[in-house]
Design a protein around this nucleic acid. Sequence first.
RNA 1: GCGCCCAUAGCACAACUGGAUAGUGCACGUGCCUUCUAAGCAUGAGGUUCCAGGUUCGAGUCCUGGUGGGCGCGCCA
Length: 591
Amino acid sequence: MKSTQRKRSNEIHYGSTDKALHVTTDQATSMKDQVVDLIEQSIRAIQAEGMLPEGELPKPQVDHTRDPKHGDLATNAAMVLAKKAGMPPRDLAAAIIERLPQNNMITKCDIAGPGFINFHISQASNIAVVETILTTSEEYGRSNEGQGRRVQVEFVSANPTGPLHVGHGRGAAIGDALCRLLDNAGWSVHREFYYNDAGQQISNLALSVKARIDGVEPGDTTWPADGYQGDYIKDVATAYQNKQTVNAADRTVTASGDAVDVANIQAFSVAWLRREQDEDLKAFDVNFDCYFLESSLYTSNAVEKTVETLIDNQFTYEQDGALWLRTTDFGDDKDRVMRKREGGYTYFVPDVAYHHNKWERGFERVINEQGADHHSTITRVRAGLQGLKTDISEGWPEYVLHQMVTVMRDGEEVKLSKRAGSYVTLRDLIDWVGRDATRYFLTARAATSQLTFDIDLALSKSNENPVYYIQYAHARICSVQRKALEQFGQWTAADGIQHLELLNSSEEQSLALVLSKYPEVLAGATKRLEPHAVANYLRDVAAEFHSFYNAHKIMEADEGISLARLALATATQQVIASGLRILGVSAPEAM
RNA sequence: GCGCCCAUAGCACAACUGGAUAGUGCACGUGCCUUCUAAGCAUGAGGUUCCAGGUUCGAGUCCUGGUGGGCGCGCCA
């Protein structure tokens, strides 16, 4: 597996196969890690005996089994190493088992199929995760892999020409979940929103508002070409005429009301739509540390300097009156124009300058969450950065691209077109199905998959949204805890730890097992930048809990059993609340 | 024509990045509320993982070539 991530000061290889999944926390080592350790010891012993060559060997895998008949954990070590050892996998498996160090966690291990080694874990070891969860509390699932290093995540980055649409919503949901995952893994996360407040699109915006002020409507002969036709343009015009003051997150503008002052109209319109987007984001509970203006790259001369450096480094040439960047030197399929014949720069030039700025701000990692329709910019931006001849590595910045969101309404597709002015907004979704369901739907699927958001379905079945399944488990646990308070008076989850050995049913054991996977699920989701894994995992946790809940009464006659089950339920509650927090979904105490 | 992404049950999607008998939710069949929340549980049916080759102990996953869909391929952003 190859990864062209960073090569600056601290060496990190996110793609490396070993260690990458190692959960670096101070908490008790997981069952899986312990088994990995045992197998490694055994293999070293075999190497010492000369049955396996010294030096580097293929890395065996240890996985949770799908089928309980295969025990709890399984390794392919014997199959992977059979060739090196020159012996049949099953024979090698026997040798590995023979040399496993003594331990009280494994009750049985056997050889199965082509040479798998299956490990059966004792119930006591399995249920012990409940104690780990309760005692490490909010630390459970956290790691310190990031070690406080700085990562910047740029997402949404919508231009202020209209309210956010569902595509932005997907970006907001995924981007924010990525931030929460990285924060959970010990990174210092900086959320940034980049937008253009001065280009052609913004001129069109100002002209559209001015047209509305002048009483011109879309379709009239004097309506501006490429004007924004949405009704919100009328609202901006009215607010402007009323000389309103607009407070957006990053700017405040008061309208003069002067119908011919295009500069003021433009400034006011940008602020008005920025505020509109702020409200969309607020309704979605997404916040940013910084709003970065494309225009600032011009006023600071960053764009000029970038161009000069690229010229000095001889990656450019003049042709047909334009200035070209030899992006083909860096894997592009054709060279790209930087400076147009009439003088202006193409859009990717400030983009390069912007990313150089990010680099100079010291972000060790930068992750850009964008719609897949912008994927062609990746090559250009990276090529531009390489052309600057700094020590930026080829794979910097990283990208997470989400595929299109198709919105179905009344059985037909609604085209997402900001310029046409007719599209479903993020706020529409939130109003219809709620923030939690919107967040969940938009993060529960892999970013690489196209997403069909069927509004009619979401409307008609709003009570059957999968997010409620998870929230319901949380609310149920809260309800039981309230009952326990009535029954026991003073009571804490820790009281049940000493009775955990009473939890020997398959439902209780299965629930504990799924809870024990939480740290590695988070580690995997963080490493692969795939928050949807968390959503899927939470559904599994909820399913195991509901099964447990239906099979066993928590508040039993026997106090020890009650306390033990309360401990298990509380550990479950903690994991669900933690996972939902990463997705930005609330964990209600009652439903 | 070229590049990127995708193709898995009727529908929408998973599958711990190469592991054992491919799972979950809707929808469909059958049971379960006098008992901590039935927004729940149990159970059944539903599959040639788009097609054809290849790599190896082993392929939904990797490689090659097709087919079908989305996006991009501008001196627009």
